[in-house]
């Protein structure tokens, strides 16, 4: 097991170097220069030249890349050329927001998805099966930015039940411990903050969770159906075990493995792919941060955050694999 983990971690290094190199290369191919973005309509050629020189943008491509790698190896992601803030600090300020949103979305997706999938599998061809699987198909086909607009229109504009944007109302105090508002408010027993955060979290989490929810529901159903056909379930049934016990203790446990893989993949995607949801709900997270940096040609920021996100992504995949093994010892890892 340990050897496997080490091996996987070592593999991570060439992949991450490749990722950063590709990101660096891409950014160098992008026309337009950050100096122009910073100086705007008023830029004079002298100022542009001066700024490029100051930012080190005039150095050869490989020199810039080497400088970046050197810095990263010494544990420094550098500073944004726009805000002059340390990129590590900026990432850490925004990451909890994204993490909280992704966790909430995943929670909604798993609870609803697995429940629907199990019921559908236990009663195939029932009205519930048809309804939930049709719903799941619509779910995987959903343009979530559109769904976001519609739920805002319904729940914020028309009904006025839920706030359309942000994470916390301004009058509410909350001490930052983990940066996850729900966790922090529970830790400090700050109930107004808890309800307020929950209200803010609800719409974006449901919207972001729509597609994973649909995928998990379909996966659970398919996987459950397969397991329910297996001999040991038949045996269990023959032994006269209660139906509910069979489903939960035997079938679901085994059917959960492929679902877990899907969850891992989806979670990684949620962490990095929430750009559209974060934009629509004004969620101060990492997706928006990176996209803005790409558009503003803030090369060090794009570089640093892609490295961060890719590492996270690969690590989540690793953890998923390990969980998989922990649950089912029959699986040999390579």
């Amino acid at each position: 097991m340990l050897r496997y983990i080490v091996k996987r971690l070592v593999w991570l290094i060439p992949v991450l170097i490749g990722v950063t190199f590709l990101a660096f290369l891409l950014l160098h191919l992008i026309p337009g220069d950050p100096a122009q973005v910073i100086l705007g309509e008023r830029a004079t050629p002298e100022q542009l030249e001066q700024l490029r020189e100051d930012l080190g943008l005039n150095d050869p491509f490989l020199v810039q890349y080497a400088r970046f790698l050197g810095r990263v190896l010494s544990g420094d992601l550098g500073r944004s050329i726009h805000t002059h803030e340390q990129i590590a600090v900026e990432l850490m300020e925004r990451f909890p927001a994204t993490l909280e949103l992704a966790l909430a979305a995943m929670f909604v997706a798993t609870v609803v998805g697995v429940t629907a999938g199990v019921i559908a599998a236990v009663r195939p061809h029932s009205w519930f099966d048809h309804l939930s699987m049709t719903g799941a198909l619509i779910g995987v086909s959903m343009p979530i930015f559109w769904l976001g607009l519609l739920v805002i229109w319904a729940f914020s504009v028309q009904l006025g039940w839920l706030p359309p944007s942000g994470r916390l109302s301004h009058g509410i105090q909350l001490e930052t411990i983990t940066g996850l508002h729900l966790v922090d408010s529970v830790l400090t027993a700050n109930w107004p903050a808890f309800w307020d955060s929950l209200a803010h979290l609800l719409l974006p989490a449901v919207v972001l969770g729509t597609i994973p929810m649909a995928i998990i529901a379909r996966m659970t159903r398919a996987s459950m159906l397969e397991v329910l056909e297996q001999d040991y379930i038949r045996t269990a049934r023959a032994k006269g075990l209660r139906r509910g016990a069979i489903i939960v203790r035997h079938a679901l446990k085994n059917a959960f493995l492929p679902v877990l893989t899907v969850m891992g993949l989806q979670f990684g995607a949620l962490l990095s792919g929430a750009v559209l949801t974060e934009t629509i709900f004004s969620w101060p997270g990492i997706g928006r941060y990176v996209v803005n940096a790409i558009l503003a040609r803030d090369i060090p920021v794009v570089q640093g955050s892609i490295l961060f996100i890719a590492t996270l992504f690969v690590l989540i995949n690793l953890v998923t694999d390990l969980l998989y093994k922990a649950i089912d010892p029959r699986i040999r890892l390579e």
Partner: peptide
């Protein structure tokens, strides 16, 4: 005095109507 960032114009206007800004 609080300056709040709400990138989308329409969402910002919703907050104003709701009185949260």
């Amino acid at each position: 005095l609080i300056f709040r960032v709400i990138p989308d114009n329409a969402a910002r206007f919703l907050e104003l109507q709701a009185g949260t800004i």
